[in-house]
Design a protein around this nucleic acid. Structure first.
Lengths: 110, 110
DNA sequence: TATGATATATCGACCATCTACTTATGTCAA
DNA sequence: TTGACATAAGTAGATGGTCGATATATCATA
């Protein structure tokens, strides 16, 4: 593949960054919003999301801050950094390239 | 994910089945045609393709026959079975569902 | 003569996801 | 009040797909 090899399996990273574009969110909230915005198509598992959030934080794309709601566990909100915003734009481009190529093949392109 | 978990990493299977829809082809030929039809976006590696072809054959989606060209290695042509044709239709549906959901999220859908 | 194209194939490494499990609290119904 | 479910974050191990490297073999071209 010319495009980044983790593009296919890695579209979850794009989705998470995209969710944070419209405001800080915590993990559990992202799972719900993603399910809603995708009409139940994407059911992100916690075992997938939390390790992903940690790796995105390590790369400097997102930053965490905690809110102690008093109940249960404190919420860990994530904020999209400038670097994360650039990464988001890049990944979005990449995905559109991928989807475009898929469509050309599926439409029986030349 | 509600959709098959191997959908993302597994869109190569869909691509290969799609290529065989328009006629029997051999591995090396698929790599070339895929590159051409996707405008160089998809560069399928032989280490990915051949094991994939074998697994598709085991599942009964494709059947192989050899053509001894006399030169070098004989070509192993693959033929799409009826079962493979059904699988192709299913995978194509699945992909469009996935792509549609991605677009809804990327367009900032409700 | 050696490089690159043609052609198929395997192996080990890597990486992302999934399932299952853990911890902890609040709420609602039987 | 017991059990189930929602909220909330997290880890560990298994699985599965892709890639790079390597192997083999022939032919054409520089």
């Amino acid at each position: 593949m010319t495009i980044d090899k983790s593009l296919l399996a890695g579209s979850t990273a794009l989705l998470v960054l995209k969710l944070l574009e419209s405001g800080d969110k915590y993990g559990y909230q992202m799972v719900e919003e993603l399910r809603r915005r995708s009409d139940q198509t994407f059911e992100l598992k916690s075992g997938t999301l939390y390790p992903l959030l940690h790796s995105l934080e390590q790369k400097g794309y997102i930053e965490a801050w905690e809110e102690d709601v008093g109940t249960a566990r404190p919420r860990r909100y994530y904020h999209l950094t400038d670097s994360g915003r650039r990464q988001l734009a890049e990944k979005e481009d990449e995905w559109r390239t991928y989807a475009g190529a898929m469509l050309r093949v599926l439409e029986g392109g030349a």
